[in-house]
Design a protein around this nucleic acid. Structure first.
Lengths: 204, 204
DNA sequence: GTCTATAAGGGGATAGAC
DNA sequence: GTCTATCCCCTTATAGAC
């Protein structure tokens, strides 16, 4: 593998494991057995490295957060798939979420991108909820829907952090998906609820 | 006011505003118009400062998270008060939550204390939910209760972060309390639900 | 492309005078 | 109690040889 690629992959691993603020360019170079100078030959600095990793993440999730191109609303089973893929990407780039406030405070580029990403996430989730609502599968008023939407967004963004603090860290998206779908449960119409409930069980 | 107290208060303000990792001991000294040496006369270092602020926070919330001494379960209106007081403390020491993963990674003392705090929070919330359940006011099975409990904990811990990322920062606990109570809503028995619903409305 | 060496700056922390 | 001066270490980043 090319050095440039190795640097990116190693940086991602170290960032995810120790948190971006706790990983220096020297750490990355040492881990790869290359010189710090070499690292700076391939990337202008830590921020450039960060931006490229961020771009990869945005790329990887772009399809998921721009479903409008698709024809028609999702089928129930697709909700599980959607969340599973989403959390797979989040877990793969979890350093972005672990120190989100910090990153946003220190790098304006990241702040802009991540805020846009959160907006897109919120829009997409809202669209999915509205679809369910129109199909009479989700039963609630507009206000409850907004609150539910915030609860979903919050769980998507911070579930990993919560698991970490609770010392229940997990590299699999299963629990996260179950938690998000669980938030939907009490608002679902009876048949859909039973269906969703057994779906959640199935992945235990 | 004594210098020692001024340092603590100033540190708290700066940590809350900029995040602990972005505030140096020199920043604090400069803001107070004292020398860095003076600061180190009063506190052994940044970590000692941090620990004292943490101790203050634990103190301030200790009563809330150890309700078992109280006689009997809470009345519905007390749930609002409980959450209001809790979020007031969290907002006052929000730097602890804003960079929680980071702080936990860098300071083992903080990690231990905050994990204990989260455990106490979870226990207390669980106790409150079980009380409601026994009173037939909360209708759900054990599994749903656990998921609800996690949703509550997560919201308590990360609502401020979520608001920050969404650029809807707020120094008042109102929205946070409404969001947490909103999570309860769909599981409540009809009368309690209406009561709680109007309670949420009232504080808009 | 890769290395060694090193500059430049920041942050934590201490010594010693007042 | 408070100040000035200073040290040390870590991190980022660059220069120049190979």
């Amino acid at each position: 593998m090319k050095t440039r690629e190795r640097i990116l992959q190693c940086a991602l691993e170290l960032f995810n494991e120790h948190g971006e603020p706790n990983v220096t360019t020297l750490d990355i170079a040492t881990e790869l057995d290359i010189s710090p100078g070499n690292l700076y030959y391939h990337f202008r600095g830590k921020e450039a490295l960060l931006e490229e990793l961020l771009a990869d993440f945005l790329d990887q999730t772009h399809g998921l957060l721009h479903l409008e191109s698709r024809a028609g609303p999702l089928e129930p089973e697709d909700y599980w798939l959607f969340l599973h893929l989403l959390f797979e990407s989040i877990i793969a780039y979890r350093f972005l979420f672990q120190d989100l406030s910090n990153l946003i405070g220190r790098y304006t580029v990241i702040a802009r991108s991540m805020r846009q990403w959160v907006d897109a996430l919120r829009s997409t989730l809202k669209r999915l909820l509205l679809d369910l609502h129109e199909q009479q599968r989700l039963l609630c008023d507009a206000q409850a829907l907004e609150r539910l939407l915030d609860a979903l967004c919050q769980t998507v963004l911070f579930w990993l952090d919560y698991q970490r603090v609770s010392q229940r860290e997990d590299d699999e998206p299963t629990q996260a998906v179950q938690q998000v779908l669980g938030l939907l449960l009490p608002y679902l119409e009876t048949d859909t609820r039973h269906w969703m409930s057994s779906l959640i069980q199935r992945y235990n």
